[in-house]
């Protein structure tokens, strides 16, 4: 097997344990979407076209509450604005790639594929691998998982008992990828400030609390690092 394909499969392999946490996400979205009166293929189309679960759940809820179109779209896009940051973070690793390939990889961008790829790129031998192909393996694993489970959730979702609280698996996937990414004090501060601000700012309109937390955390980490290096 060529070195390239083994890089692709290592992306698949390293990401596959996250299926345990992302599968419930697809199941829950598919199920909830159908209970709000959307036909099964409508829920499935939503997942394949937008492919951003957190925003899909909120947008679906706002649609069920008959919020105005502008509020619904704005809220959904604000939740997804964090991916501007992922885009900026991945971009230096993919320079020179054909724009169509970049577009395909961008369409599949998720929190999980981003976190797994950046962690791999930052390892000592990270510059020796085919970076886009590693990401592709990671991203397509998440894509397949979320879309297949959306289909299952849409058709079978009514059978999942809500007491199981399967949705809790979603933040657990973030814990699983963020904790190993915190390797020094500035990064720990970035996480602490990000989490605290997002919590306190949770009631901001349009779900702006997430971006408020994200930006404060990044600035806090950067400031702490500057203090460290400047003595």
């Amino acid at each position: 097997m060529s070195k390239n394909w083994s890089t692709f499969f290592s992306g698949v392999r390293i990401t596959s344990p996250l299926i345990l946490g992302v599968a419930p996400f697809g199941l829950i979205f598919g199920a909830i979407c159908v209970t709000t009166g959307v036909p099964e293929w409508g829920a499935i189309g939503f997942s394949t076209i937008v492919f951003a679960g957190a925003s899909q759940l909120v947008v679906n809820q706002l649609m069920a509450e008959h919020a105005s179109m502008a509020v619904i779209i704005l809220t959904g896009l604000v939740i997804n604005m964090r991916m501007f940051m992922y885009s900026a973070s991945l971009a230096p690793h993919w320079t020179g790639l054909h724009p169509i390939k970049k577009g395909l990889l961008a369409y599949m961008l998720t929190d999980q594929a981003y976190a797994m790829s950046i962690a791999r790129y930052n390892e000592p031998d990270g510059d020796t691998i085919n970076k886009p192909l590693f990401y592709f393996g990671s991203a397509i694993t998440m894509w397949g998982c979320f879309n297949i489970t959306t289909v299952l959730g849409a058709y079978l979702g009514a059978f999942i008992p809500t007491e199981w609280d399967l949705g809790f698996a979603i933040p657990l996937t973030f814990i699983a990828v963020v904790v190993p990414a915190i390797k020094d004090r500035p990064a720990a501060l970035a996480a602490a400030v990000g989490g605290a601000v997002a919590l306190v700012a949770n009631d901001l309109p349009y779900n702006l609390g997430l971006m408020a937390g994200a930006v404060s955390g990044i600035v806090a980490g950067y400031a702490a690092e500057r203090r460290q290096t400047n003595g």
Binding site: A119, A187, A191, A214
Partner: peptide, 16 residues
Amino acid sequence: MLRFIPAAVLTALLVP
């Protein structure tokens, strides 16, 4: 600042 994105953004997502 880019290197703080995973820690800050994922934690901002997960805590609430």
